[in-house]
Design a protein around this nucleic acid. Structure first.
Lengths: 168, 168
DNA sequence: CGGAATTATTTGCGTACGCAACTATGTTTA
DNA sequence: TAAACATAGTTGCGTACGCAAATAATTCCG
């Protein structure tokens, strides 16, 4: 299945790949803990509030929200639980499809994200964006978009042919 | 604590930041599932094997290995458990400091990573490196190194002053 | 030297999340 | 239209992991 010859990473590739992985790990941890200690909100919960706050009528279907948050559907169900208990989100049966549920941001949830956003943005800037000048930010965005595009294509085609059914 | 005025992200910043986050999420999921389905090895376990395979005498102290893997010490203890059960790693008391433990890669573990590496590298290339030319890989490495450096400094200084003890 | 502080690791406990199975609803088809 | 299939979301179960406390060994002073 794999070729016998492996193309190992050269120094430049290895450096880029490892730096990329490490930056991500550290960024996630730091942004999460800043948010937790300042607002009692995990980064995962914050992410949910962000997407809802940007949605029409502060409303999104569970599945869409799950996809936006890069989380499984069951994962999202449980992520919402704590936000619902805290009164920041409510869940309503979707009128046009009674299988579905809409997650809706409440006034309380909107308040919360307004208060928490400065902390988060400060972190994103301090640990990430402000370490680069404007051109570099743009350049970085273009560079990461390339592998991202590849992966998004891959995901879509994989979804369409989940398993190759031979001889059927 | 936060300034009242927030500098929201402009289009370029937002695009870069979100693409960065999403690429990471997708890369992790894809590389993990490729490794699991082809070799019954999680990406986290693979990571452990990689670091041990590069270490002098295939040996690393638990703490060093934890840091290399971006995982807590307790997390590493448990990550090793499965690898030890599978006979790919053994743990030995460190002769020079009997508090410490050395994780050591076994012949079986070395075999395993030799077999699994091609799969992983193929993925890293296909979903990431091969989407960029050599100059872009280098450029990307330089760009991510800047925020990374900032975060590494930050982590170090934070460790040195864990909590500001006023009035003591 | 001998106790206090430090360091390395593990363990108990709680949280987060993915997969597969399940429920309920909607759509297709014959 | 009834049965088969598909889709949305939730739940049971198992895994991974972080924090704080526990344990054990080392170092630092006085």
């Amino acid at each position: 299945m794999n070729d016998s010859k492996v193309r190992w990473l050269n120094a430049s590739e290895s450096n880029t790949w490892r730096s990329f992985l490490r930056l991500n790990a550290l960024l996630g941890v730091k942004l999460d803990s800043d948010l937790i200690s300042n607002h009692g909100l995990t980064l995962a919960e914050y992410e949910v509030l962000v997407h809802l706050s940007e949605a029409v009528d502060y409303t999104l279907r569970m599945s869409s929200l799950a996809e936006l948050c890069n989380v499984s559907r069951s994962g999202l169900t449980r992520r919402l639980d704590s936000l619902i208990r805290a009164g920041m989100v409510v869940k309503k049966t979707c009128p046009s499809d009674r299988r579905g549920m809409n997650a809706v941001l409440t006034a309380k949830g909107l308040d919360k994200i307004r208060v928490a956003a400065p902390t988060h943005l400060l972190g994103v800037r301090e640990y990430f964006l402000d370490q680069l000048d404007d051109d570099e930010v743009k350049e970085l965005g273009e560079l990461v978009s390339k592998p991202l595009k590849r992966l998004l294509d891959k995901v879509m085609t994989d979804d369409q042919s989940p398993e190759p059914c031979f001889g059927e």
